[in-house]
Computed example of a mutant assay.
Amino acid sequence: MASKGLDAEGHIAREGSLARVPHDFRAVVAATRARLPAVFGARLHSAYLYGSVPRGTARPGRSDLDLLLALREEPTDADREAVRRLGEGIDREFGQIDGVGTLLYSRARLLSEAERHDLGWFVACLCTPLLGEDLAAELPRYRPDTLLARETNGGLGGLLPRWREQIASAGTEETRRRLVRHMSRHLVRTGFTLVMPRWQGWTSELPEMAEVFGGYYPERAGQMRAAAERGHEPVGDAGVLRAYVDDLGPWLAEEYARVHGVKTSRPDGG
């Protein structure tokens, strides 16, 4: 019997399914599935949903639609522009979503040894097949161990300078709001995976992630709970962003490196 997001053998169980997509979001998913082949044709190997929509927890007007696309070759700038236009069109047409986020990679990268415990794990455990052959069939099973923790979220320290640049150039409240949502979610997930091997389980729900983290770091529990709330209800507050890169973020990056080490560098710096 599965427990804390694990199967009977202690592996992380794949979350989400098309059957769990809420009724309000089914038309969005159907339209996306119908339009993707026209954008990429035979170059598209497979497409996946992830996030709250396939988990069944999406909220109309508040949740975004998250996609991962695997191409048969390396994506180009033109591919990224095509994905951007597709996402903008879907976002305009369907008011029940608040934006479309799309990850675009080659099949080879997703199955590479370097990504085995990062993007590979993401596909195998957190993505729901939408189109094409499921890459999970070519990936291993995963346990909530320190290797997975390091390779998924051990790169926070390297992200902080980029985050500071993004904050400095955020000239509108809407831009700051989107940064708060993105950074809040990243910090909560990093806090959770910091303690995941001790907790021995998996969840993708931000409030539960924050509570699990707080059980091991009570002195930071309030900050993480607040970040979880802002991950769902972001505010365009520059003070929140500064606190992330001046306090919570640096502390979390240092503690993560102490406990699990730093994520293995990628050839492209990712």
Rank of each mutant, 00 (worst) to 15 (best):
A13Q: 10
R14K: 07
R14N: 11
E15F: 03
E15H: 15
G16S: 02
S17K: 11
V21D: 11
V21S: 05
V21K: 05
H23T: 11
H23Y: 04
H23N: 09
D24L: 06
R26C: 02
R26W: 07
R26H: 06
A27V: 04
A27I: 03
V28Q: 13
V29E: 07
V29D: 10
A31D: 15
T32R: 03
A34I: 00
L36E: 15
L36C: 06
L36Q: 13
P37Q: 00
P37S: 04
A38F: 04
V39G: 08
F40I: 05
F40N: 05
F40G: 13
F40P: 06
R43W: 05
R43Y: 03
R43H: 09
S46V: 10
Y48D: 05
L49T: 10
Y50H: 04
Y50G: 09
G51F: 00
S52V: 03
S52Y: 01
S52T: 02
V53I: 15
V53H: 01
V53E: 10
V53T: 13
V53F: 00
R55W: 01
T57A: 06
T57K: 09
T57F: 07
T57Y: 06
A58W: 00
R59C: 11
P60M: 01
P60Y: 02
P60E: 05
G61R: 07
R62Q: 15
R62V: 10
S63A: 04
D64F: 00
D66H: 01
D66P: 11
D66A: 02
L69Y: 13
L69E: 06
L71C: 15
L71Q: 07
L71D: 05
P75W: 02
T76P: 12
D77H: 01
D77Q: 12
D77F: 00
D77K: 07
E81F: 06
A82V: 03
A82Q: 13
V83P: 13
R84A: 13
R84E: 14
R85Q: 13
L86S: 10
L86V: 03
L86K: 02
G87Q: 03
E88D: 14
E88V: 01
G89K: 02
I90S: 03
D91Y: 04
R92I: 06
E93V: 15
F94N: 12
G95E: 08
Q96Y: 00
Q96P: 12
I97N: 14
D98G: 13
D98E: 11
G99K: 02
V100T: 12
G101M: 03
T102Q: 12
T102C: 12
L104V: 09
Y105R: 09
Y105Q: 06
Y105T: 15
S106P: 08
R107T: 11
A108H: 09
R109E: 12
R109G: 07
E113W: 02
E113G: 08
E115V: 00
E115P: 11
R116V: 15
R116S: 09
H117C: 02
D118M: 04
D118G: 13
D118C: 09
A124M: 07
C125R: 15
L126V: 11
L126C: 07
C127P: 09
C127Y: 00
C127D: 08
P129Y: 01
P129C: 00
